Each structure stands twice: as structure tokens, then as C-alpha cells.
Simulated assay, not measured.
Amino acid sequence: MTLAAQEQNRHRWLEALGVDSWLPRGNLPGAAEIAPWVESFCYPNDAQADAWLEDVAESVEEQAVPVSTPAPKPVAARARIDTETLLDQRPAAVPKATPVERPVRTTPTSTVVEAPRFKLAFVLRQDLLIVDSLPPHQPQGFSRHHRALLTGITTALGAEADIELSDAMMLPWPMLASRTLDQGAEEARRAVQHKLRRTLESHRRITQVLLMGEAAAHWILGETAPLDTLQGRSFKLPSGLPVVVTLSLSELLRLPERKAEAWRDIQPLRLVRSSD
């Protein structure tokens, strides 16, 4: 059987099964070159069925293959499958269920205000309350250098030598590492005022307050002006206690040449203490 006859045989069976087959008539990009017999190949049809069978029979005789049983009669080609009819016989489509509307979950917009950052140290010596502003970004608190400098300042103000500085009571803000809690300016002001009130209630002997640094002046007095404007000025707390504002201990440690400037700022406290 020639190669063309074999292809016709294959296409005939494919056609009987309802499968359409195709052969390229020319070379395709990226594909192997077509065989020479493809150009003369003809798809078998009903009119060519007898000639095709004869060609098959002749090719079998030429090969002289012994056959133990007579060749079966060719089966008539079956009608091609009507795809459109099969599609028309498909069961009716099941109607889609009506989707249930579900409430859309929305993420509530956070209204938490950015927390201010500051660190205050509350220190007592005799009848003087000192509130010092510490750098909030530095992990160390009220160091021995801060303590030594403040001891010298308060001694110069007239504090008795046998009365030492108290331990520093720290108030860092924000107090908790949380972005979901409200630690905004209003909450910070309440915390500072609560700390101040509790300190004054626990130490009735306090008669004067020294605020050192901008953060202390801002959160104790509620003043929003820069430190240059507040420095050296005298204020009063709602309770009537006199208050003086000057540079922070950290600033004086960093720039010792400003100690004379701070000494001039605290003269009202010195004069008040001298009159006791």
C-alpha cells in the first residue's frame, strides 16, 4: 500500500468517526517541510470509495502477504456526526442561582492622632520641684551627669547639704508601644497634669517649680512658644506655685558655656529662697 493510500485509509476512518482532518498545502512557518505526496493527496468521498478499496486490495496483493481468511467486505461509511443536532439536544441549562448580596466589609479609617514624643524627669530637693526635659530618642534616662549638675544648681540656690536629690520619676511619652491606642497630644497633656498633681499632693512642702527645657514648659504650662521666648520668664501654676523656665540639663551638659545663661534665668527662685 502506498503512503498516499495509507493516508487515505486513515482519513477515511477519521471521517467515519466524524473527525475532520486537515493537511497543509504549503510549508508552515516553524514546521517541517511537507512530504511531496501531500500536494497530490485527495480526501476520499463516497464516489471514490470503490476506487479507494480497489487500490487497497491491489496494494495488498502486491505485498503477497499470506491471508488465512478472506478479507472482510468493506463496511459502508457511516454518516458524519451532525454536531449542530447534538448541540440542539443538550439538556436545558440550569438557571443560575440568584447571588445573595452580602454586606461589604469596610475597614474603619484609623482616627488615632500621631503620638508626641518627649521624656520628662520629676526630681525633688527640699521644697523645690524640678521637671527636666530629656532627649526622647536616647535610651538612657536621668544619668549621674544630670544628677551631679542638678545637685550643684540646687545647692547654689540654697538647698541644705544634708538633703539630697530624690530619685528621678520618669514620664516617657508615648507610654505604650501601640498604634491602636490614642496617645495623642490631649492624652499626653492629661498624663503630665496627672503626674504633676499627684506629685504636689504627695509632697506638700513643695513651694517652687523649676522647668528645664522646652518639653517641660510646653506640657506643664501649656505654652506653645519656643524655649527662646519662655526662657528666664516666671509663671504660676493654677495652684499659685511660682514657676521659672530655663535650659534643660542635657543642653547644659552639651554646651557648658550656657550655664551662666541658666544661672541668670533661675535668679527669681534664688531670691525667693533667700527671703525664707
Rank of each mutant, 00 (worst) to 15 (best):
M212G: 07
A188S: 08
E160P: 12
I206T: 02
G152I: 11
Q231N: 14
L124E: 01
Q193F: 06
L129G: 00
R179C: 09
T207K: 13
M169N: 06
G152A: 13
R179T: 14
E160M: 11
D127E: 13
T229L: 14
R147K: 07
E214P: 11
P136F: 11
V209W: 03
L134I: 07
R179G: 14
S110M: 09
D132G: 05
Q183L: 05
E164W: 11
Q138D: 14
V112Y: 07
L149S: 04
V113P: 13
V112H: 08
H137G: 15
P172C: 03
V113C: 11
L165D: 01
P174M: 05
S110K: 10
G158L: 09
L211V: 09
L157M: 15
G152S: 14
L165W: 04
D162M: 12
V112C: 06
V209H: 04
A115K: 12
L210P: 02
D127K: 09
R102G: 05
R204N: 09
D127R: 13
E214D: 15
P103V: 10
D132F: 04
T155D: 14
I130Q: 06
T229C: 11
T107C: 08
R197W: 07
L165K: 02
E214A: 15
L211N: 07
K236N: 12
